[in-house]
């Protein structure tokens, strides 16, 4: 087989304790028994509505929230870490290898630091460089990759537009030499005309520096254009996962189909043909029994209400968790 994936998660769960009611503590299952392999060097897309657990999953893989069940491993050319038990020096080392790019470039950058200091901070905090000269050289090298010049480095973030700020955030994430980057809605706050520019930059970085990306987004057309592989989440569960083209050409899960048809068409004469999903994603504290999507699924039958479907691996690399996907093949939701 091919080389080992960079990230391997099995039965991964993340639960948060919320309040304490009459019947004891309540657990909010944000990520619920997820199996996930992220191949080295890939641009892996994770999509789903708000509340689907995609951000929590990304944070769990960065060890920014505690993993409460199952296993997750990280393995590059040099190290192999068990993310559930990682601590001490190894955890500090993992922080260099795994980085996060945030959604809002306005909130993510300190207004009181120059761009140079913002990018240099991780180097100093992690003790990656010994001298100021070394730090400066590294900052300049990374800044150039993100198309920021020396003049830019002297300024403060307020002087930059959204697209430029996002390039600063990217430079900061890159400076420690990571192998794995979680980009959480990293272009969602940007204007369309700038979005393409930042996406192209991320792709170039993936290619030039051989960095693996977990790209979290709610924008399916952006994901379709940038990712090699896409996983779809709903209410903490992974419901479908496939190579991008396969997924967009022939989605198998009714939820994925509904998501696709909800994308507003650019054709003014193609109005109202979309299949509209009724209702909203249920609250994670009060989850439906059986298949979590059954409350909104146009194809739900009794089985769906009683039994939760497992993620099937039909052998063609296109995984799906739905009782009826075989019957529904080729059928668009009515």
């Amino acid at each position: 087989m091919t080389e080992r994936p960079l990230i391997t998660a099995r039965d991964l769960s993340v639960g948060f304790k919320i309040g304490s009611g009459f019947f004891g503590k309540q657990i909010l299952k944000a990520v619920d028994h997820v199996d996930l392999d992220i191949a080295r060097g890939s641009f892996f897309g994770l999509v789903g509505e708000s509340g689907s657990g995609k951000t929590t999953l990304g944070r769990a893989l960065l060890k920014a929230v505690p993993i409460t069940g199952g296993s997750a491993r990280y393995g590059d050319e040099e190290v192999d870490y068990d993310l559930t038990t990682l601590s001490g020096a190894e955890l500090r080392d993992y922080r260099k290898r795994a980085q996060l790019i945030f959604q809002d470039p306005y909130a993510a950058l300190s207004p009181r630091m120059t761009v140079r200091d913002i990018i240099a901070e991780p180097l100093e905090v992690m003790g990656l460089t010994k001298t100021r000269e070394e730090t400066d050289a590294r900052v300049r090298e990374i800044a150039a990759k993100c198309r920021l010049n020396l003049e830019h480095l002297r300024r403060f973030p307020h002087a930059f537009s959204g697209g430029q700020r996002q390039r600063i955030s990217i430079a900061r994430a890159l400076v420690s030499g990571p192998r794995f980057i979680v980009a959480d809605e990293s272009v969602a706050a940007l204007d369309v005309s700038i979005q393409a520019d930042v996406l192209n930059l991320l792709k170039q970085i993936q290619h030039d520096l051989r960095i693996t990306f977990l790209f979290i987004s709610h924008d399916l057309s952006v994901v379709a254009h940038t990712c090699d592989h896409v996983a779809v989440m709903y209410l903490g569960r992974l419901v479908e996962s496939a190579p991008t083209r396969t997924l967009f050409a022939a989605p198998r899960h009714p939820y994925t189909k509904a998501l696709f048809s909800a994308i507003p068409s650019l054709d003014p004469d193609d109005r109202g043909s979309a299949q509209k999903l009724q209702g909203e994603i249920p609250s994670p504290t009060n989850q439906p029994t059986g298949c979590k999507f059954h409350t909104r699924c146009p194809f739900a039958v009794d089985l769906c209400r009683k039994e939760e479907p497992a993620l099937e691996h039909p052998g063609d690399g296109h995984e799906v968790a739905c009782h009826r996907w075989r019957e529904l093949l080729g059928q668009t939701a009515a």
Binding site: I194, Q195, A196, N200, S221, H225, R245, F248
Partner: peptide, 21 residues
């Protein structure tokens, strides 16, 4: 319009409007 990622042509490169506002 060119900068929009289009679902019917995944091979089309994403072309930003050059520069910043």
């Amino acid at each position: 319009i060119a900068a929009l990622p289009k679902l019917d042509d995944l091979d089309a490169p994403l072309t930003p409007v050059a520069g910043d506002i």
